[in-house]
Design a protein around this nucleic acid. Structure first.
Length: 347
DNA sequence: AACTATTCCAACCGCAACAAA
DNA sequence: ATTTGTTGCGGTTGGAATAGT
């Protein structure tokens, strides 16, 4: 038998990891940290490539992983973030403590996608399927509402950190991401004007009510996290009036454990004024040359590390609170601006 | 009980970005 | 400026588990 030439690479193991391999990897990292992944397998006595070790650690062995089923709030948040970020799984996962990009991606592909489709929503665009298949015929009434949350958050960012995002309106960002026109109106102060919002957001306990100051004459609505699995939200996203439909969609996908991480929702709403449909987002009242803004700020936004200053506070808050649907049946609305967000984050 | 279809998740692959040489 | 190595990301696949017939 011919001698194996020196330097010939040893055949690396592939496939599922054995408990022994896991232990070796864990022990090595516990002792030395992971340092260079490429050299780790040899040092740890593993017949795996560094890439495989890294993946195993990140996706499975890391001690800070949450594992287990996704809560309803996590699910909603994923949908919410996906509408803003698209398939940026690592960025989405970065906002979900203890979750990995792979986990989020799998959850999206195996469950959320299906659920959205069954609810008549195109998971890729977050628009109603009918609309998605009929591009170009969009009317003002059928404008996408799906980005409204993103817009709201962005608008808050613009208000909260004017030095970072001087005039970044959510709308400009949305123009930069999509050729469709935005659903919400970006105002000159960076806030957004929505012509309607039928959903209720209730943030007592997170938001200092006193901080929820805003011009009563304006229509600036909060960055809300819609409970997309709730019938009202799904139907709204699908273009149906929440009030007109009461059937639930919870049966779509084996509902995951709802016990961990989420939002405490108590009642503290202010006015009960508007009948505000997701899809009845009004025309811009004060934005000027959104396309130009998009060209400029789209690039800026691309460089933003979202997790660094959009969601860190959110994440902190997110970890310790009890889960409940953001939206109740209340028709009340809450109004707040960047102060609201910051209080939310700091609470 | 046996077979087939479907679902779900861990792992792999290829590519791009980045850093160091 | 170029090459090489490493890391991180997103898409895809393989196979175990489960459901259905």
């Amino acid at each position: 038998m011919a001698k194996r030439p020196s330097g010939t690479k040893k055949k690396l193991r592939r496939g599922l990891w054995s408990p022994e391999e896991d232990e070796k990897l864990m022990n090595h990292i516990a002792k030395y940290g992971h340092g260079s992944w490429s050299s780790m397998p040899k040092l740890a006595g593993l017949e795996r490539c560094g890439k495989s070790c890294r993946l195993r650690w990140i996706n499975y062995l890391r001690p800070d992983l949450k594992r287990g089923a996704f809560s309803q709030e996590e699910e909603d948040f994923i949908i919410h973030l996906h509408s803003m970020l698209g398939n940026k799984w690592s960025q989405i996962a970065a906002q979900l403590p203890g979750r990995t990009d792979n986990e989020v991606k799998n959850f999206w592909n195996s469950c959320i996608k299906k659920k959205l489709r069954q609810s008549g929503i195109d998971p890729a665009t977050h628009k109603p399927l009918a609309e998605a298949s009929n591009r170009g015929a969009a009317t003002a009434a059928s404008r996408t509402a799906v980005f409204s949350d993103a817009e709201l958050i962005l608008s808050s960012v613009a208000q909260q950190m004017p030095h970072m995002l001087p005039v970044v309106t959510a709308e400009s960002y949305m123009y930069s991401r999509s050729s469709t026109d935005g659903g919400a109106s970006a105002c000159s102060d960076g806030s957004l004007s929505l012509s309607g919002y039928n959903q209720t957001a209730d943030f007592t306990g997170y938001l200092d009510a006193d901080a929820l100051h805003c011009d009563p004459s304006s229509t600036v609505y909060p960055a809300v996290i819609p409970s997309v699995s709730s019938s009202s939200t799904l139907n709204s996203m699908a273009g149906l009036s929440p009030a007109a439909t009461t059937t639930t969609t919870n049966e779509q996908c084996s509902n995951r454990n709802n016990s961990s991480g989420g939002f405490k929702s108590t009642h503290s709403s202010t006015t009960a004024t508007n009948h505000l449909s997701w899809l009845e987002l009004g025309p811009s009242s004060a934005c000027t040359d959104a396309a130009a803004a998009a060209a400029h700020y789209g690039a800026v936004l691309d460089e933003l590390k979202w997790s660094d200053y959009v969601f860190d506070g959110y994440q902190l808050q997110y970890q310790g609170i009890q889960g409940q649907c953001i939206y109740g049946d209340s028709k009340d609305t809450v109004q707040f601006d960047a102060h609201g967000i910051s209080n939310w984050c700091l609470n």
